[in-house]
């Protein structure tokens, strides 16, 4: 499929002989569901290299950049699209319908970015009911002024007559793979240009990893982190800090210093961008290949190293130390809650 896109790179001689024809171009579509738009930006971040690509692809659908309608997609032959890139989790009926439609028209679907991959940050709303979520967003956040308690509704009449509708919310934000089958994943919030290019390269080479995650490493961030050597052999954390509560020397392991860093369970390949500016890893590249549940794996690890130095038999000491971990569910599952076994369990019930 994407051989068409980059095949020329491999065989320059062939490239020269090949006559470009419209029908030979790689047919693609891009769609965003519940995401912030960062993933679309990420595509632009590929910069000049993008021009090489644009020349060889046909974009048949890309709501954010190209003027196309759903009906245009409906009109396409099934499996006409070579590659469909979808970012964002699925949280309303419209998104659900559109991705199903795209699936029908696609040879390959690529879950692009953390939200499509695992549900992402919007997926943390699965911790609450729709009602509680709306209550919070429209009425009680500190920056909200809404004395009339205006709330978007599925149907609204327009002042001049007629009505507009909003797609109803799904009770939960879902990772793309729970709505349609997904062929490949490109992780990251957003995926780095390097990751995107590497993902395309992997696709072209045909040497696709077993778990179909493209562009990222199969070793954890610790494996690439310069600070790993500072990690003491007798590591033990007695209390935890939020990022603003402690000054961390730039060469010290953040976790060893008591700042929650998801590096140990997170795939490398992100260039340690956060670590390099003294911020802990938040896990956007997703879990290592053998992990069943990213948050639980991190939980098991962090609970084990807490107070691991002088193991006190005092249960209250352990409780106090564990209590310094603020918002464990939001921290351990920042990007992966909808993909977690716990959320799946709750949803099944």
């Amino acid at each position: 499929m994407l051989e068409k896109l980059f095949g020329q790179k491999k065989q320059k001689a062939e490239q020269e002989q090949e006559v470009k024809q419209e029908s030979q171009k790689v047919k693609t579509a891009f769609y965003w569901a519940t995401s912030c738009g960062g993933c679309e930006e990420a595509i632009l971040d590929v910069r000049e290299k993008l021009f090489d690509v644009l020349d060889k692809i046909d974009i048949l659908f890309w709501p954010v950049a190209v003027d196309t309608k759903y009906s245009d997609v409906e009109a396409l032959e099934d499996k006409l699209l070579d590659a469909v890139f979808i970012n964002g989790g699925i949280s309303n009926i419209e998104q659900k319908e559109v991705v199903k439609l795209l699936r029908k028209k696609a040879k390959a679907v690529i879950a692009f970015g953390s939200c499509a991959h695992m549900g992402g940050i919007p997926g943390l709303r699965n911790l609450y009911s729709i009602e509680d979520g709306l209550e919070r967003v429209y009425f009680t956040t500190p920056s909200t002024y809404n004395p009339e308690r205006a709330l978007p509704s599925e149907k609204s009449e327009l002042p001049g007559g007629g009505e507009v509708t909003l797609p109803p919310l799904l009770p939960n934000v879902l990772p793309l793979e729970e709505v349609i089958s997904v062929d490949f994943y490109v992780p990251g919030c957003p995926p780095l240009p390097e990751t995107i290019l590497k993902a395309l390269e992997v696709l072209l080479s045909g040497d696709i990893p077993e778990d179909n995650v493209l562009g990222a490493e199969s070793k954890s961030l610790c494996n690439f982190c310069d600070r790993n050597q500072s990690k003491p052999e007798n590591l033990s954390v007695e209390r935890y800090y939020r990022v603003h509560e402690k000054a961390i020397p730039p060469d010290k392991c953040l976790l060893a210093e008591g700042v929650i860093c998801l590096g140990p369970v997170t795939r490398g390949g992100c260039g340690e961008k956060c670590i390099n500016v003294n911020m802990p890893c938040r896990g956007c590249y997703g879990p290592l290949p053998d992990i069943d549940d990213m948050g639980l794996r991190f939980l098991s690890n962090i609970a084990s190293i807490t107070c691991a130095g002088e193991e006190s038999t005092d249960e209250s000491k352990m409780r106090d130390a564990i209590a310094t971990i603020k918002d464990p569910v939001g921290t351990f599952y920042r990007f992966s809650y909808p993909d977690s076994s716990i959320n799946k369990l709750v949803r099944r019930r």
């Binding site: 948050g295 639980l296 939980l299 609970a303 352990m318 564990i322 464990p328």
Partner: peptide, 11 residues
Amino acid sequence: YRRYLLLKEIL
């Protein structure tokens, strides 16, 4: 015990 404490919070 420490894992249990944290797991309970998550649950």
